[in-house]
């Protein structure tokens, strides 16, 4: 279990994770905020679908990948939480959306 070791007042913000609203501490990186909130599943690998959670917390392992504000495969340990941020799990490969009308001005 991940628990805060210090006491005292904290500032919080609200983020969305998988459609659920989470109140998290301001200033944390996304990975830390989700771990504190008790999230136990981050990504599934594109190779076998194995579930992974943050491993190194310093930007080297690429196991904390999430979809953040629509952008896939983001290293969540390197990005600070922001008010209203929308976060989803990264399940397997990235998908890129092709928007025919936008691309061709139709």
């Amino acid at each position: 279990m991940f628990t805060k070791v210090t006491s005292g007042e904290v500032q919080t913000i609200t983020i969305q994770f998988e459609g659920e609203t989470l109140v998290v501490r301001k200033g944390l990186n996304v990975a830390a905020a989700l771990l504190e909130a008790g999230v136990k599943q981050f990504r599934e690998t594109p190779v076998s679908g194995q579930a992974r959670t943050p491993f190194c917390m310093m930007g080297v392992c690429f196991d904390c990948l999430l979809i953040i504000d629509g952008m896939h495969n983001q290293q969540s340990c390197m990005i600070e939480v922001a008010e209203g941020m929308k976060i989803e799990r990264q399940l397997g490969m990235a998908t890129i959306e092709f928007n025919a009308s936008a691309e061709q001005g139709l």
């Binding site: 991940f2 805060k4 070791v5 944390l28 830390a32 959670t53 190194c56 917390m57 310093m58």
Partner: peptide
Amino acid sequence: MTMGAAQILLKESELA
């Protein structure tokens, strides 16, 4: 996790 990751959580996010 690596133990280093746990220490980073402790230093930066005050998380145990």
